[in-house]
Nucleic acid binder design. Structure first.
Lengths: 362, 362
DNA sequence: GGCCGGAATGTAAACGGTTACATCGAGAGT
DNA sequence: ACTCTCGATGTAACCGTTTACATTCCGGCC
């Protein structure tokens, strides 16, 4: 049977209304409808009004995929994070989301990557789906991956040592230094440090700044004052316990992020110690709850939403500029925010916990 | 001049490699390449291997938009939240992300909507870009909006009274009741409650359960025991201050979410009171930091990641089922987790703070 | 009156896949 | 030898936009 005898035109599904329907109904061509909708070219006021009216009455919604295919841009950017955990990332996403929405962009998010292969798979899967991406790679080496996989795509690195790529970093050094100076002014000389993940660029920089500052302020330098951590509350808690066991005991603890400071605080308080009386504890980031801890946490404020916003701006520019874009590098400043988790060193006091400190009653 | 004399074929940009390039290079047709790539139909082993090889060597990556246009599905779901703030949402997103990725789906996120018009705009903008969406509407009325705007689209409501739509809710009633019983068993009879946003369904349900439980356990019922809040730490802090000013003073405070409990804790501690000695404080949600507060917070655990996971499963099913799908309603169970923020009522003790309680030293 | 310019609009070729249907070949059945 | 069947593959229509180029229409000017 010749194909000419086939059923007229079978749609696979009751398809939505298209630009053709609008055009037909409004008595114009699809080109005109498109022009009206995109305000791209001159269209008679009268025609325009009418098309708009028909479109509305038909509940016409342009097919995004078709448009994306046609203009080769999908107005979506990808965000790839090591983990969506925690307030830090939420804030960054929030900053990006706000900026992106204002520019008519959407965000495709992917977090929680245990290993680097998984992250790589995500990078790959996002390709073609986004116009560019913001990636925070825990693993510095992703810069290399990028070369191979996402080659021509606009990309903004977050907190990774940028080499010829757009990047936004935090002024970790300045922040950590300011904090150390603050501690020194209070009289602390035995300052413990809780480290972050080894491959994390921010963590490494904060550690370096801590070490350098120790020398500057003439405080005690010792590998035994450095405790392992991975930016989680849990690791901070563990570090807190270790710090209590150290001798001689530090008088202050600098956790390289707030989440770990929370853990340290918790460990100290569960062991019956009081902050800031027995220990001074400080963090880094100034996550929203920092101000509500007991005691309110002295920390280094990083404007995370601003970080996100700037990342988007940079990416946006890069997307628009195409190959003409020259990689830029921006640094987000930090500020010391002093709350109540620090005091003078308690050297003169006994180092044992208040004996009768009430714990849970039941 | 007839169009046949136009330049051969001008590409607007140095376009990426397409399926045609692969087909040509492998000496087969595009159909075959497509079949190989999608494992959809029988292809000779030999042919398949070869196509795959060519594809790899050419670094071929299918154009997502084209595929989406063709198969009318983009393997992306949207998540619309009132605000990406806070650990609660991060956890939910995380749960969805994990489940979605496993099913080969991507997630388009949008949070931080101050007003409902903004949210509406987002709903609209996502349309056509996603195969379905998970929305957590602070405003119950969005169900109505849905009717008008997102009509035919699969949709899973989070924490909204579902009427004929897929929905996932939390067992707020059971959780709140268990908590009240726990408080009652400790001997509390004056239990304050910190409310959430008025239009928030979870908040409303928790409040209702609190009220009902009061009657059940024979505790004091009074409008003066209910304090306003909006689920933020800040509002919890304010409520905490108000609670201190109330007479007679409550012996326990039930914050309808953990973020507010954090605020309450902070207010009490800044005013020199101790928990659980002077007050018992409990929350709802069991956000990650709850366990690290001082004292560790007794709260109602909600498995947020599971909530997200289930939301995705439901949506996925709905997307697959098309119109044949019958709306379902799932309820996430809650469990009481007892930590150290509760004790017996301190009625017998003085109600004034420890006078000499050390506050910030400098 | 013919020509020119430009505004408004129409026509149809992309964009890069998927897939229904046609085609081709080879072995099986008779 | 001739059809039949069926597996493997090719052809081309189609998804819904955008947009380059063509066309039409009109007023003004020489």
């Amino acid at each position: 049977m010749p194909s000419s005898l086939r059923a007229p035109r079978r749609r696979r599904r009751p398809t939505a209304v298209t630009i053709h329907d609008v055009a037909a109904r409004a008595g114009v061509s699809v080109a005109t409808v498109s022009r009206v909708l995109n305000r791209k070219a001159l269209v008679r006021e009268e025609t325009s009004r009418q098309v708009l009216e028909v479109a509305r009455s038909l509940h016409y919604v342009p097919n995004i995929a078709a448009r994306a295919l046609s203009i080769r841009r999908n107005h979506t950017i990808g965000i790839v994070l090591p983990d969506v955990h925690g307030q830090f990332f939420s804030e960054v996403i929030r900053g990006i989301d706000l900026a992106a929405r204002r520019a008519g962009y959407h965000i495709l998010v992917s977090g929680s990557h245990s290993d680097r292969d998984e992250m790589l798979a995500v990078l790959e899967a996002m390709r073609g789906r986004v116009d560019g991406m913001v990636v925070m790679s825990p693993d510095v080496a992703v810069t290399a991956l990028r070369e191979q996989f996402v080659s021509a795509q606009p990309l903004v690195l977050l907190n990774s040592p940028a080499a010829g790529h757009d990047a936004i970093t935090i002024d970790n050094h300045g922040g950590a230094q300011a904090m150390m100076r603050h501690l020194a002014e209070l009289g602390h000389t035995r300052i413990a440090f809780v480290k972050g993940p080894e491959e994390n660029a921010d963590a490494t920089e904060r550690l370096r700044a801590y070490r350098r500052a120790l020398r500057l302020i003439g405080a005690v330098r010792s590998a035994e004052l450095e405790f392992a951590g991975d930016f989680s509350e849990e690791s901070g808690f563990a570090a807190g316990l270790q710090i209590l066991a150290a001798t001689p005991r530090p008088t202050a603890v600098f956790a390289s992020n707030d989440a770990m400071a929370v853990g340290v605080l918790s460990a100290l308080s569960e062991s019956g110690f009081s902050v800031p009386r027995d220990f001074s504890v400080v963090g880094f980031d100034d996550i929203p709850i920092a101000r509500y801890l007991a005691p309110p946490l002295t920390t280094v404020k990083v404007d995370m939403a601003e970080l996100g916003r700037r990342a988007f701006e940079l990416l946006f520019e890069s997307i628009g500029g195409g190959a003409a874009h020259t990689p830029r590098h921006e640094c987000i400043p930090t500020t010391l925010v002093v709350r109540q988790s620090c005091g003078m060193p308690s050297a003169s006091r006994r180092t044992n916990p208040t004996s009768g400190k009430a714990k849970a009653t039941h």
